[in-house]
Amino acid sequence: MNALAQPALPVTRRVDSARLGRLAIASLHAELACAPKPGLVTPFDTGSHDDMDAGTFLRSLFALRHYFTAVASAGADDAPFALLRAHGIAAEHAMLRATGGINTHRGAIFSLGLLVAAAARCRRLQGHPAPAAQVCVAVQHWADDFAAAPLDASSPGQRARLRHGVPGVREQAAAGYPVLRELAVPTLRHALHNGLPRDAAMCQTLMQLVAQVDDLNLLHRGGAEGLAWAQQQARAFLERGGAFAPGWQAGLHGIGDGFVARRLSAGGSADLLACSWFLLQQEVA
């Protein structure tokens, strides 16, 4: 067991796993609905993708609706990582069946699944929702086990990770998701508290992630040069005021044209955006 593991779970505190599962699906839907998102699929365009659209994502979400409830139940029961992984593998198969073999949510199945399980475990221990940062750190309860689990060396993300020597979501999870605790969640919380509506706050958070994260999807599609270009575009958008600036949507559409021309898509950042929305919503649910 990881050194940061928490004490044995009490048997008297019940967790509404179905509610956490619905929050997870709603968070993925919020990410899909958010627009404009450079290079990413929205309800209005397919971004840099020619093999998927919003309908593909909706079919995937429908296929995953039971997974997040199941993984929440497993987390609340202090299940071993092997059970969480089995749920994740089954969910990936369901996703691929629903999408005709297209990977829409593999990263979210891992990261959001772990966070849902951790949120459920924290609730069982404490009897109430945990702050977002605590949920991130609680993922380390399973760190020894998922660090040792086999990787799919053939996946585009893993190939990019090995080629460029950058950490992936597994390393982020083992560290308690510092990118969520220190960057994404604070950015999203600040944007919402300062009056931005949901889509604007999410776009602001997405561009902070693109600016600062070595997104494996960007590396896979554009190499180091493509990643650097995308990060520079995101930083320039933020320096102009980001989603707080008048006319920010037009600026983001212009950046999106450049992403599409270069076939770039920040899918890893999009997964982290959905995780950030879930972490905030579960605090008050």
Rank of each mutant, 00 (worst) to 15 (best):
A120I: 06
R198T: 12
V116F: 07
A201V: 15
L192F: 15
Q126M: 14
L162W: 11
H128Q: 10
L115M: 03
A108G: 01
V179A: 14
A174N: 00
P150Y: 11
P131I: 09
L209D: 07
E171K: 01
R198N: 12
L112G: 00
A149C: 14
G107M: 05
L206N: 07
V185L: 10
H164Y: 15
L112S: 00
L151W: 09
P186I: 11
P150H: 13
D145I: 08
A191W: 08
A118L: 00
Y177N: 01
V137D: 04
W142P: 01
H141F: 13
G176S: 04
R198P: 07
A200Q: 13
A117L: 02
H190Q: 14
G107K: 05
G127A: 03
G107L: 01
A118P: 06
V179P: 05
M202Q: 15
D199P: 11
P129T: 06
R124F: 03
R170V: 04
A149V: 14
S154Q: 15
R189E: 13
L125R: 09
A133D: 01
V179Y: 09
R121L: 02
A200G: 14
A148T: 11
V185A: 05
F110A: 04
A147W: 11
V135D: 01
V139A: 03
A175R: 11
V135F: 02
A130S: 13
Q134F: 08
L209M: 13
V139Q: 01
D145N: 03
V116M: 03
L196M: 13
C136L: 08
L115A: 00
A184F: 09
S111Q: 03
R161F: 01
Q172G: 05
V169R: 00
R170L: 10
R181M: 07
A108T: 04
Q126G: 05
R121Q: 06
A119T: 02
A120W: 03
M202Y: 10
L114R: 00
A138N: 02
R159P: 05
P131A: 11
L183G: 08
A138I: 02
A201I: 15
H164N: 13
H128T: 07
S111M: 07
R163D: 03
A200N: 14
F146D: 06
A211P: 10
A174Q: 09
A138H: 01
G165C: 09
L188G: 08
Q126S: 13
L209Q: 05
N194V: 10
R181G: 02
Q134K: 10
A147P: 02
P186T: 14
H128W: 05
A120D: 04
A108F: 06
S154T: 15
A173W: 00
L196T: 07
R163K: 15
G165N: 03
A147R: 14
L209F: 12
A184S: 12
P197Y: 12
D145K: 06
H164R: 11
A211Y: 08
L192A: 11
A143G: 05
Q204V: 09
L206V: 10
C122V: 06
F146P: 04
